[in-house]
Design a protein around this nucleic acid. Structure first.
Lengths: 347, 347
DNA sequence: ACTGGTTTCGCAATCGGTTTCAAAACAATC
DNA sequence: GATTGTTTTGAAACCGATTGCGAAACCAGT
């Protein structure tokens, strides 16, 4: 153990002494909160730069009761959708001089409540919640209770919907997304289109489903109940889904998967069955994560422009924490990224 | 928008008043730093629980100069390897009552330096750096300078190697990993094995390469220079690599890709060329991220047991920050996860 | 009951900033 | 040059914890 000469921290008092001003003046310079004579300001800045001095954020947070940190509660950053959103948020936050702390609930309810507590005790200025959480009906009440209590002090912004807790929302326009995909396939001549993966009690999934039906109707295409295969949001859900569909006497010619993961499962099922994509069947999906590029063939998918998504999330979060006016609901508009997995209907 | 009655924070003084003790006693109870009469302790805890009181970490950090936060500097959390390590670290940190703050450098050198500054100003207790950084020769000097300055106060632990900056290392046993893969393929009868992706100036990649040659030698298999195809660590590198190899008059029968991404590229190249995996060619790789499960066929890969990896990283970080003795170098032992992408040599 | 030794406890200082308040400095006006 | 108004400035209080120090309480032991 080397000398524990804990290299005493430089404080504004040190700066003050060396610049021959009072600590208050240093503080004022650093926050440019009031007018200080240019001459002194320069003296102070010179010393500040000399030592590359950075004010202690703990002390700062203590006195002005703002931490400069925004908490991000993501379901699981290992999921590329969340990591994409996370990185976009980190960028946007950095841009505005805020730090970010990330917590992954890993879909575990208890843990989610605990995370909320951590964020609370970290005194974050705002919380961004991105994840599958739909509403409190599906979830435990302790979360709702905790969240409600917290949201009294700290604004919460989410990409979903948290019933019973006041929060700001920045959501993806699922209706538009679904429209893009459905019309794309119809434009290619497909009439037998199946939906794979996702639960209809998840609001965004439900919106996609309803829109799908509407577009079908608008185009005079009959809706078939057996082409809707609910499931999870992962690879296995897609795999299971396509197996069911392939067992049908009248198979679909195109699949809309609920996300890239389930699309991967669908594609595995198809490949194993010896079917060609998109020759025998087209596959498209939502999210446009990097796994679209890994699959063979490359997957066409709906992109959300993660950068502006992240920006809207953190701008809302920060502005709300500053008590500025923030729209309660914002949306980001999706667009379709075409790759190799969808093609004209051949039968 | 409810009243902006910033719901005054509950402090240790409030607790003290209600429990009829002094603030110091409350503090002692909360930190159980000294013995306090059980009776009073109970009184205090009752009030604490009543309000679900959490001491303000800013104030705490201010006085004891520990923030309870460890900073994680990851190259890019969108990469599943890093996100896996990150989540493991988050878990391990939570386990020990620490919080974590994540920064992604996105391979940008300037940004990396900036992140270092952020972590510094956040007064993190320790820094964990996971990323491709090899040594300072490849990197800018400002990072080295900054890191050096910081490491004087805050321990840095990395999975790589930072020359010129004192740090603790927890690395993957690349030699063992390479051995596992190479021997696995040789065991299946392969004699023409190629390495795809990765740069030999990256230490871990180099170790894998050398081990590969050694094992070949031990088994009396001739080494062929044209079977080594350097490249990046992504899908495209694998794709480009396999194209080169397929152009050879004597093609290899098995591929070791530097990670799952490049393996995906390799597999695409193979599939496009109409070759069967593993029938015509076996493919294996390092990292065992979830994308191994997405590919067709599922990819055999080297796993690192991310949980213990993360645990070692954070244990080292925390213990070092506590001035405990921590080994300078630790390793995690890899093991092979067999799936469908490797099979016996058929020619 | 008194003494000596431990525990337990509270006062007050401290951590490193921000901010209020009033005094000091400056400028402008008559 | 005296007076009024406006900027600048520094002293001191404050944010919410922790902690050193000494006083008070407790516990035998005689």
């Amino acid at each position: 153990m080397a000398e524990a000469k804990t290299t005493k921290q430089i404080t504004i008092y040190d700066i003050a002494r060396e610049a021959k001003v009072s600590p208050s003046t240093v503080s004022r310079v650093l926050t440019n909160s009031a007018n200080v004579r240019p001459e002194k300001r320069d003296r102070v800045m010179a010393v500040v730069n000399k030592y590359n001095f950075k004010p202690n954020p703990l002390a700062k947070g203590l006195s002005d009761t703002r931490s400069g940190v925004i908490g991000i509660l993501a379901a699981d950053v290992r999921n590329p959708f969340y990591s994409a959103v996370y990185v976009a948020c980190e960028n946007a936050a950095l841009e505005r001089g805020y730090r970010v702390i990330l917590c992954c609930s890993l879909e575990d309810k208890d843990r989610e409540v605990e995370q909320l507590n951590i964020l609370k005790s970290q005194r974050v200025d705002a919380i961004i919640q991105i994840g599958g959480r739909v509403d409190d009906v599906m979830t435990d009440l302790s979360f709702a209770k905790e969240a409600k209590q917290i949201s009294a002090n700290v604004p919460i912004v989410t990409n979903g919907k948290i019933d019973s807790v006041p929060c700001y929302r920045v959501t993806i326009n699922a209706i538009e997304a679904s429209k893009l995909l459905t019309e794309h396939l119809i434009g290619l001549g497909h009439k037998k289109i199946a939906l794979v993966g996702g639960r209809l009690d998840v609001i965004s999934t439900y919106e996609k489903y309803i829109t799908f039906r509407n577009i079908l109707k608008q185009n005079g295409i009959p809706f078939k109940k057996e082409y809707i295969v609910e499931g999870g949001y992962n690879h296995d859900a897609g795999y299971a889904g396509i197996k069911k569909l392939l067992a049908l006497k009248e198979r679909p010619t195109a699949i809309i998967a609920i996300n890239d993961f389930s699309a991967a499962g669908v594609m595995r099922g198809l490949t194993e069955a010896g079917l060609k994509i998109p020759g025998d069947m087209s596959v498209v999906s939502y999210d446009n994560t990097y796994i679209t590029d890994l699959l063979v063939p490359k997957l066409s998918s709906i992109d959300y422009d993660y950068d502006t998504f992240g920006k809207k999330l953190v701008d809302s979060a920060i502005d709300a924490s500053l008590k500025k006016d923030v729209p309660t609901l914002q949306t980001v508009t999706p667009h379709l990224v075409l790759r190799e997995s969808s093609g004209p209907c051949t039968k």
